[in-house]
């Protein structure tokens, strides 16, 4: 079962701020999910290969060629930036002490 301390770590790893009033609701709902998926533990999976992809294809790759995105694409990318300076994305300092 997820407890408060573990929940705080999950929220931090997920980079989601959770205010105190919401914490218990999250913990309750997450624990419901944990309970629901615990059924998987009863399956004997010795020697079973995990499925990561549906396809039997292999070696899907491209040749090493350069194709720049068009200026109109770059313009949209840039206009979507919350803040920018010159050609950079502008962001808050990593650590602000």
């Amino acid at each position: 079962m997820i407890k408060k301390c573990e929940f705080n770590n999950i929220a931090f790893l997920s980079r989601i701020y959770v205010n105190e009033q919401e914490v218990n609701k999250y913990i309750t709902d997450l624990n419901k999910m944990v309970t629901a998926v615990n059924i998987l533990q009863e399956v004997n999976t010795d020697n079973v290969i995990p499925t990561t992809h549906m396809t039997s294809m292999r070696n899907i790759w491209r040749q090493d060629t350069v194709k720049s995105s068009t200026n109109s694409v770059k313009k949209i990318l840039f206009n979507n930036a919350p803040e920018a300076e010159n050609c950079f994305y502008k962001i808050r300092k990593v650590l602000n002490i």
Binding site: I60, W61, R62, Q63, D64, S68, S69, V73, K74, L77, F78, N86, C87, F88, Y89
Partner: peptide, 25 residues
């Protein structure tokens, strides 16, 4: 120039998918 060599994939736009460069392998 900063961010001139970027596209929808390397700026991680929604729906973009990686296309593996064989030369790198």
């Amino acid at each position: 120039q900063p961010n001139s060599n970027t596209c929808v994939i390397c700026t991680s736009q929604p729906g973009a998918l990686p296309l593996l460069n064989k030369q790198a392998i």
